[in-house]
Write a protein that binds this DNA or RNA. Sequence first.
DNA 1: AATTTGCTCAACCGCCTTTTT
DNA 2: CAAAAAGGCGGTTGAGCAAAT
Length: 355
Amino acid sequence: MGRSPCCDKIGLKKGPWTPEEDQKLLAYIEKHGHGSWRALPVKAGLQRCGKSCRLRWTNYLRPDIKRGKFSLQEEQTIIQLHALLGNRWSAIATHLPKRTDNEIKNYWNTHLKKRLAKMGIDPITHKPKNDALLSNDGQSKSAANLSHMAQWESARLEAEARLVRQSKLLGGGGGASASASSGPFQAQSSEFASTSAQFQKPGGAARPCLDVLKAWTGGAAAAGVGGELESPTSTLSSAAGVGESSTAVVESDSRLMKEEGVEEWKHLAALPEAAEWAAAGAEHVPSGNFVEKFTDLLLSTSSGDRRFSDDGAESDNGSGGDGRSRGGDYYEDNKNYWNSILNLVNTSPSDSPIF
DNA sequence: AATTTGCTCAACCGCCTTTTT
DNA sequence: CAAAAAGGCGGTTGAGCAAAT
């Protein structure tokens, strides 16, 4: 048996909200909390469906919403997270305090996506649409990096999706709630982490995501650049505040990997991309201080006059896109890229659905 | 001044997942 | 366990506005 019949949709108002309606909704929620969205409209004296009320509240009326232009840091975060997560706006939104998923989605669709397209990059696959367009100068390198990234990510996301399904079957169960602050997210984040971990060197399969990030970022360490994990250089750290201990995250993920990792690795290993990369070794990991260049390119492409100040680097408007390239130093490039991602991880709220 | 074009963003729609009965 | 409601998410639309012609 199901629940009692749903709300009758007769006479429900649609379209833009009036200030009076906003006031009613606001007053009600401030006083009682939203409780059941379905019951709320009647209690609050609104001729709206609960879904509409929820949307209005979460996207507009909530007091902790920041409106207005996105900062460069926010843009960069979105781009990085989109490269990592795809169109998972709600997940991305958890890393941009005070921004709603709807707003981020809109911003991506109206701004960032166009910049990608302008660069000749498919915003869906993140692969260059036409290599010929990027045949010379620095963009070609970024495009190549982008291609690696896209391949890597698509495989990773595929595995991630599989793992999510698996873990649900394995009885991560009770925690399936969608609440924004409870355990289930930790399970999910571990899945995410362990999935990514599988892209590490084949021999090191049973290591968590963050280890592989560290391995890559610290790959430089092996090459003499190490020890910077505690102080990632990404702009995200300043954007998101002080990070939590990455070690703790890694450790908890490690535990999970021990339980699930072996089987997951098998699945992942079945992915052609993974096999390809495994065979090719670390050089085929998304290369380039990829996101940094990627976002540099995007941001500088947008209006042609915006400059990056986050790390003191200027955008490459016309001065040779490769100006910041460091001679194909993959380790260095990877380090920067993964520092960015690691930083995101480390600075993520503890209840983040992703990390 | 009138019209067209492009942009932004709030809101809706439909699907999927979770929860409840 | 199955059915159905509720919640949540991502894709899409369209009204309103500004810039361009």
